[in-house]
Design a protein around this nucleic acid. Structure first.
Lengths: 212, 212
DNA sequence: GTTGCAATCTTATCACTGATAAGATACCAC
DNA sequence: GTGGTATCTTATCAGTGATAAGATTGCAAC
């Protein structure tokens, strides 16, 4: 059916990735084990090595799956037109629904390394809706500088990432106040972006590293 | 000399922590191993278990050491009076000098869990100088609301954390442009804070979750 | 000083994991 | 059908986390 086809098992490669995602639903990334996944699928403990060179290769594939889920949410939020707040909620929502998958994705820098082409591409796709949102807001202010747009989108992304880190750790013991805190944080992010755009609009090009 | 005293080895507990920090200088956190540390210290491979219940306990102690280093830098930057930019530079500087230690610290939520009292306390100490800086700037604007101060300090902290994540991954392939990019990012963080303070000053209390 | 106790360290051992090699099996092209 | 290749299994090794039982050291009470 697809490119890889199916031999004995069906599609063991995908099955392993899916099993890993399921495992991460209630176990930390460090507890992932090729052998456990193999046992849970009823195959021999060495079979996975015909699809993944080593544990890291499997983890990279799982990370790609995670980024794909995140990307889908971000794309959906972008198309839903719920603005910056919707994008923020998509990001934090993904992390809260899949905290261990989110941790796996971010505890290595693999996705931010162009050497991992597939991963890098998917993570860029997840970033795209936010970039588009920032670009649109910049244009609305008469700002065309793509360097500025990229930089500011990155600032929003990193702020959102840090916020999410706090949320999944339940650092603040928010309880009922969760929604209110998130709304407040999203407002802060949006306010920061608008203030930065305003500053750019009023001053010339500040130079510095490019934004992506 | 100290509470724990010295028996056979001297202070194996501290020696193990120090060896782990040294190991992390050029190995990722996942490669940490109690046995390797023991061998590097010339003791039996089971000896560490008399000082740490399990691997996680050792990691928590190493994390505490890492947070202490970070705290020291933040405190020094706070006392040096180089303002918000100095605090940002202290944070990113620590992460760039000890990227694997930084990853270890953040890949678990342990420090953000009050159940790990020691760790929680040290991380709060690391946060304190930033909190003080934000408070001072808020006061200068006539803002006394500690909830607002805490929230905004947290926003700066999370933004800084996300930025640092990008920096240690060398996501942007900055090369020579590193310093310029950092300066730009620090300006952005400072601008966001000032804009948020300005917004608070001009409007009443917006309610929402408290800031810490 | 000697004795007794508790902390520390060692040796031995087990279960589990990552990883490789060699052989068996199933699919596909021809 | 036949051959070749991808897939899977069994067997095996090294490294790690962890525990148990015994040896050693330091300290304190007598």
């Amino acid at each position: 059916m697809s490119g890889k086809g199916k031999y004995h098992h069906g599609d063991l490669r995908q099955a392993l990735i899916a099993a890993a995602v399921e495992f991460l639903a209630d176990h930390p990334p460090a507890d992932l084990s090729i052998r456990k996944l193999a046992r849970s699928l009823g195959i021999s403990e060495a079979a996975p090595y015909h699809h993944f060179a080593d544990r890291q290769a499997l983890e990279l594939a799982v990370m790609a799956e995670g980024y794909a889920l995140l990307r889908d949410r971000c794309l959906a939020a972008g198309q839903a037109g719920r603005g910056l707040e919707g994008l923020c909620a998509a990001y934090t929502g993904f992390a809260l629904d899949h905290p261990n998958l989110f941790r796996l994705i971010h505890q290595s820098s693999a996705a931010r390394n162009p050497a991992n082409a597939v991963l890098y591409a998917i993570s860029a796709e997840a970033f795209a809706p936010l970039l588009a949102e920032v670009r649109q807001r910049a244009r609305a202010q008469g700002i065309d500088d793509e360097g500025q747009v990229g930089f500011l989108a990155l600032m929003v992304w990193t702020q959102l990432h840090g916020l999410t880190d706090v949320l999944i750790a339940d650092f603040l013991r928010l309880g009922d106040g969760h929604a209110a805190f998130c709304a407040r944080a999203y407002r802060h992010i949006e306010g920061s972006l608008m203030a930065a755009l305003d500053a750019v609009r009023r001053s010339p090009a500040p130079a510095g590293g490019d934004g992506r």
